[in-house]
Amino acid sequence: MTKVTIYDPAMCCDTGVCGPVVDPKLTAVAAAVFSLDKKGFDIKRFNLGTDPAAFVENKTVNALLFDKGVESLPLTIVDGEVAKTGEYPTAQEFAAWFKVEETELQPVKQPGIPLNVKIASSGAK
């Protein structure tokens, strides 16, 4: 079974929806990882800011960071070999590695009409 591990640079979150600007590439990666994980595939992500031990424990990652610095992040390892550095995998790459249809990895489309929810006050104090 294919094993994919992504080593992210230090970030506050892995979804791309924090802060004032949403990063669509990061959102697509988060959706693909979530989808693959839910289907039982062996995929993991580590964030340098919250999981530094994972970067130290993996000799390949540690050596690459020592040689090339944090510019090599994000770093993707597939079956123990460096597959990609400096950018996130695409949906096409995930699909090829895990032998799934690319459409299975797309973010879920949200409804075009926003919900209008009103919360009634009970008036009790």
Results as ranks from 00 to 15, higher is better:
4 V>T: 09
6 I>Y: 06
7 Y>D: 10
8 D>Q: 12
9 P>L: 06
11 M>N: 05
12 C>S: 13
13 C>K: 03
14 D>T: 15
14 D>Q: 12
16 G>L: 06
19 G>Q: 07
19 G>L: 10
21 V>Q: 13
21 V>G: 00
23 D>V: 02
24 P>D: 08
24 P>H: 11
25 K>I: 13
26 L>N: 01
26 L>V: 07
28 A>S: 15
30 A>N: 13
30 A>Q: 02
30 A>P: 00
31 A>H: 09
31 A>L: 05
32 A>N: 08
32 A>F: 02
32 A>W: 00
33 V>M: 08
35 S>R: 14
36 L>K: 03
36 L>F: 03
37 D>L: 07
38 K>V: 06
39 K>I: 01
39 K>H: 14
40 G>H: 06
40 G>V: 03
40 G>N: 05
41 F>K: 13
43 I>Y: 08
46 F>C: 04
47 N>G: 10
49 G>W: 05
51 D>G: 02
51 D>I: 06
52 P>W: 11
54 A>S: 13
54 A>Q: 11
54 A>R: 07
55 F>A: 04
55 F>Y: 08
57 E>D: 15
57 E>I: 04
58 N>K: 09
58 N>R: 10
60 T>K: 13
61 V>A: 08
61 V>E: 07
62 N>P: 11
62 N>W: 01
63 A>K: 15
63 A>N: 13
64 L>Y: 00
66 F>N: 14
68 K>G: 01
68 K>N: 09
69 G>I: 10
69 G>C: 08
71 E>G: 14
71 E>Q: 12
73 L>M: 05
75 L>F: 00
75 L>W: 01
76 T>P: 12
77 I>M: 14
78 V>I: 11
79 D>E: 12
79 D>P: 01
80 G>K: 04
80 G>T: 04
81 E>Y: 08
84 K>H: 07
87 E>P: 00
88 Y>G: 03
88 Y>Q: 04
88 Y>A: 11
90 T>N: 06
90 T>E: 02
94 F>H: 05
94 F>A: 11
95 A>W: 05
96 A>S: 14
97 W>A: 10
98 F>M: 03
99 K>V: 09
101 E>P: 06
102 E>A: 15
102 E>K: 15
103 T>G: 04
103 T>V: 12
103 T>F: 00
104 E>N: 12
105 L>T: 02
107 P>W: 12
107 P>L: 12
108 V>L: 15
